[in-house]
């Protein structure tokens, strides 16, 4: 699904991402963990062709993401508020995204009905612009919009941050559902237990380098905790 070759990004001589090779199979669920500044977001941005790599390439389904735009057809993503159009109401935003993905208003409505639980009555029919929502609710809008096109690949940057405990659990269940459907997931998170629960494979970044790449099992949490323990 995703193949990274010799990927590097430097800022003023400092290497922030340096991944010689990483392959993501279709249907795999990968959790990206690492402290602040480990290069998680930069890595995601290069997969989404938002940052020009200093060196190396990212291939999505065998095609360089920089040379075609085909990956947009099957990739859903939400990294930060920059992915939202904040002067729209959530309804308008969903309608806009639906339109870009060729969904009819009926499709959009059906999709939103599925998310009624996740939204917890705080997103729809609020008569507010997205910019007036709390960070947590903005995140819900972003995640929902990313899932909306029923993508094959879903990329989320810290989806659990800013969410209340119930919403975190709902999101976890949602991601597990998507995994069961065969969606490929790429998720970064600071919440180790959540990410281990959702993902089959954990990639640990430190200063832009992959220091650990493992399948999750019973001891993963302990391993990670001992790594992060200061």
């Amino acid at each position: 699904m995703i193949e990274v070759r010799d990927l590097q990004k430097n800022y003023n001589g400092v290497t922030v991402v340096n991944i010689p090779g990483l392959t993501v199979q279709k249907g795999e669920t990968i959790g990206l963990v690492g402290n602040n500044g480990a290069g998680k977001t930069t890595f995601f941005r290069m997969i989404l062709d938002l940052i020009r790599p200093t060196k190396g390439e990212v291939f999505s389904k065998g095609e360089n993401v920089r040379s075609t735009e085909d990956w947009k057809q099957y990739t859903g993503s939400h990294l930060d508020e920059g992915f939202l159009i904040d002067f729209l109401t959530p309804e308008e935003y969903f309608a806009f995204i639906g339109k870009l993905n060729g969904l009819t208003p009926g499709d959009v409505q059906a999709f939103l009905d599925r998310f009624r639980d996740f939204f917890n009555g705080e997103i729809l029919e609020q008569r507010k612009y997205i910019r007036d929502f709390s960070k947590g609710n903005q995140k819900k809008v972003g995640v929902a919009a990313a899932v909306m096109s029923d993508p094959e690949l879903l990329i989320l940057d810290e989806p659990f941050a800013n969410l209340d405990p119930s919403s975190q659990i709902r999101l976890k269940n949602l991601l597990k559902d998507l995994k069961r459907q065969g969606m490929t997931l790429l998720i970064s998170s600071h919440d180790l237990s959540h990410v281990i629960e959702v993902c089959d494979r954990i990639v640990l970044l430190e200063k832009g380098q992959v220091v650990e790449d493992m399948k999750t099992n019973e001891t993963t949490l302990q391993q990670l905790e001992s790594y992060f323990n200061v």
Binding site: L50, G82, I85, I97, L100
Partner: peptide, 13 residues
């Protein structure tokens, strides 16, 4: 500019 990343990653040429 506030939602430029969205425009680049959504299905929009």
């Amino acid at each position: 500019s506030a939602h430029f990343d969205a425009l680049l990653t959504k299905r929009l040429s």
